[in-house]
Design a protein around this nucleic acid. Sequence first.
DNA 1: GCACGGGTTACCAAG
DNA 2: CTTGGTCCACCCGTGC
Length: 551
Amino acid sequence: MGVDVGGSTSCGRLTSWVRAGGPTVEGLELGANSEGFTENLRAACDTAWARPFTAAAALHFPPYLSSSSLAIFPPHFPGQLFLCEEEEVSLMAPQAMTEYERRRLENIRRNTEIVASLKRRADELAATVKAAKAKAPRRPPAKAPEQAPIVLRRSLRARGIPPGPSRHPSEAPTPISPPANPAKMKGPIRMDEAFVGVSPLDRHLVGAISGMAENATLHPRKKGEGGGSGSWDPASELTLVPENVKRFLPARILSVRFFPFEGRTVVAAGDKLGHLGFWDADFRGSEGDGTYVYAPHLAPISGISIQPFSMSKILTCSYDGFIRLMDVEEETFNMLYSTDDSIYSISQPPNDAKSIYFGEGPGELKVWDERAGEVSNTWVLHDQRINTVDFNTVNTNLMATSSTDGVACIWDLRKISAKKPERLKMVQHRRAIHSAYFSPSGSSLATTGVDDRVGILSGPDFNSVIMINHYNRTGRWLSSFSAIWGWDDTYLFMGNMKRAVDIISTVDKTTSSLESLLMTAIPCRFAAHPYKVGLLAGATAGGQVYMWRRS
DNA sequence: GCACGGGTTACCAAG
DNA sequence: CTTGGTCCACCCGTGC
């Protein structure tokens, strides 16, 4: 069964394509001559050859599309596409869908019908209740896609090649064809365009998030309030049941976060391919399974930040060099910042809604001022990439960074010396450090290194340092481990290569493990719910999330 | 002090 | 149950 790309402008999920043989197209000569080739393609596009498809669809094309690639859906060959690279043209046919894709498309079809019928109901109701004023005017529908030639443009950066003078004559000084809409990728992306599937099937999610965000109290509880884990034993009380295992992303997960809602359990996770997935665990509908996937990035999503004071806004950063702000009210993925370097980490101070701190390139930490719309500070804090940025929830002037250079630091943002924040404390591992997180009380810091150690800094001025052995060699296929704090300062949670969740007691320095036959893969990245004690999410390299709950 | 390349690691789908 | 594809993180050894 193939992916249907014909007949509509919707974007199917086009992940796997095979070369189906050389093209023979009536009325079009595709020669090896570069100039003629380009001209012919232009002509083809101009004569309605091109079938419009969205930027989001472009995200799902295989990685061998390069910046010089053109993709054309030929009307004569439904379900196929011409891939034109350099001076080569291939006719591509979709491969059989994976089970993941089949299931999703099936859901999508079913949901479309249900949503359509709901919409009819809503329209009828609206007609009868004419007097009722329309709610806040919805964002006007975006302009129809330009009927320009379809151009798949991938930045050099996205292909892992440093930007610079092109080595390919066909890439250089004139682009192979006029760009369809380069701003599309650089600028905002509509949520329905980025939705992996056909809109508007994410209505449930939009409703759930905006509903919770609206109803949320203005003074959310602080993490750690209302009973930590001190009086209970997570190793014996946390349980995993089949309903709390969900695979909703196709690739390795790098970041996972809970929405800071009290009334509804929603998890966001970002994967290696740039997908941002949501799992609404309280979803109780017949259509769909409460999971939703978008494709706002072109490369791994390295960080997600959701602040309690604006819960309908989700920040993501990616190796593709973009910081995007998913605005559920506006229904867009806005672009806040872009760079040629990779972005490895992101964080926001708990008391400052308008500042975004992120780790860019080999060792820079930048501060984005959302009010001014510009980078307000750039500091070189490390020799290599900054893997995490974290703020102390109690003393919000303290920031911790961890880096591949083997150092984790605590910085005082009030004191700027030599154009850098003053370094209060530094801890050295023998190898790269993948995380450094402050404890809920703010009095400890936990670091995780690939030198098979977990460091705990505590005491006055974080002067006491202990190291706990923990096997952390995850290799290339898994996301690196990083110990996170639970709901108070007594326990750390992290992955274990034996398909378990390790729980490290900071009191007696012992490690216990959570195991379950339902965990068929190693949980690498974790999130603890900010308010709900005992709600722990572990994410795997296979796109799964396990949600452990206190029984 | 570098650039380079090989080895390692686990997951999933297909046979 | 085995096999093959994944592929870009990191360590470590080699060669300049």
